[in-house]
Design a protein around this nucleic acid. Structure first.
Lengths: 231, 231
DNA sequence: CTGGTAAGTCGTCAATTGACGACAACATAT
DNA sequence: ATATGTTGTCGTCAATTGACGACTTACCAG
């Protein structure tokens, strides 16, 4: 008891950065500690899966396991919070604005959007968390994301069809599925990089350029093939 | 003791299908039981992840947990075996033949191949197992798969370039990345269906048709954009 | 029937893991 | 300093989980 106390005292720590531990620069106010736990948890669960243990997480945070439970009543709650912050917070509202800025060619708009999308949303952290969450059926409200992506796809199709002067099919599901040929190609590229750990040899913007080119080049053929010509 | 035996006997079972339990039709020879365990394990781990518990697996098999360890010394070994059988065994050699059958238009070849590929390889079972394995860094020899897919991509690019009379870039990595725009779009479609549980509204062959059309239609633009014209 | 062998189960052990009560260390206002 | 509330840790409990020894039950040859 006394020995322990002495040992701590003997380390010559200054206030504010006592414990030499990896992360947990000792004694933080509530909000900061909570933020630090959330940030570390994101990394931790992204790497170790949602079944990662609270003891190892606490270790990664540089705090005791018990302290986690001062901030989150249960591991489920912590996971839900991580999901809300990191998964749902990764979409930018101004993408919708930029994609519809017709002062720029749609090819430029698409390239810029997808380069940004890859850097902002389709990161290693985001992808791994999202896949872990999707696999464990505990569908943590993927509907919100589905809704956002659907709107993105609709905007993209509308803008491309306008610039290429192509009439879109009536069926909105089929139309979205067409946008998915581009969106899916980019998404799968990110999966290859971050999950399968491959595809690092061709630079990212080149991949985006290629995908967009192919999409625009094949757009008319794809739409025409859908159900024959439609006015 | 005696009661149990009598109960079994009283069920009027014929040899080979005694126990009415869910799966484990009581008392099988070694090879059959092993095969049944492997088949059930595939389903089980695909649904529950590689961290699924052996007790529940045994339950799904209709046998006692202890019996699992008569066939596989450890859970790791069982997982490795499942991976070998179900993941690595999902590729057909004759795809390479069919894709290079120049008596058919490349569009037809691609459509047939991808419809078959979706049914054979990109199934729910396969995809979920592959993603779980890829996420848990325990990279269970993904190099073999990467090699097969790379060869598929090379064949596809060669065949399309030949039919469209387009010269491919020198850089094989860039060339493969182009094929990934099609292969990735199809793969991501399967992921949407089986992992995200979406995209069931447009029939599968229609999606394949759309993707192939767009690929072929945009092929020349994509190749030309790569580093300017080449020869 | 009988003995032997393979198929199958029961109960248990040791390690893990989520959760939490009780206690110690620290800061700050008075 | 001393009171007070907050930050943080220790140790532990109950449930889980991989693994396995010891035992029981079914099948088959002779």
């Amino acid at each position: 008891m006394k020995a322990k106390s002495d040992a701590l005292r003997a380390q010559g720590r200054k206030p504010g950065e006592k414990k030499a531990a990896a992360n947990g620069s000792g004694r933080l106010p509530h909000a900061e500690r909570r933020a630090q736990i959330l940030a570390t948890s994101t990394e931790f669960f992204a790497e170790n899966g949602l079944t990662g243990q609270t003891r190892r997480l606490a270790e990664a945070c540089g705090i005791s396991q018990r302290l986690l439970y001062r901030f989150f009543p249960t591991k489920e709650d912590l996971l839900a919070e991580v999901y809300r912050e990191e998964i749902l917070g990764a979409f930018k509202a101004d993408w919708f604005v930029a994609l519809q800025d017709r002062s720029q060619p749609v090819e430029v708009r698409l390239e810029r959007f997808y380069v940004d999308y890859l850097d902002t949303t389709l990161t290693r952290k985001w992808l791994r968390l999202f896949l872990y969450a999707s696999l464990s059926d505990s569908s943590m409200a993927p509907d919100y994301i589905a809704s956002i992506v659907t709107q993105l796809l609709d905007v993209i199709m509308r803008e491309v069809a306008q610039e290429l002067d192509v009439a879109l099919p009536d069926d909105p599901d089929a139309t979205r599925e067409m946008a998915w040929t581009l969106h899916g190609a980019i998404s799968h590229y990110a999966i290859r990089r971050h999950i399968y750990k491959a595809s690092w040899r061709v630079p990212e913007d080149q991949v985006v350029t290629m995908s967009v080119r192919m999409f625009l080049g094949g757009f008319r053929d794809m739409v025409d093939s859908h159900g024959g010509a439609r006015d």
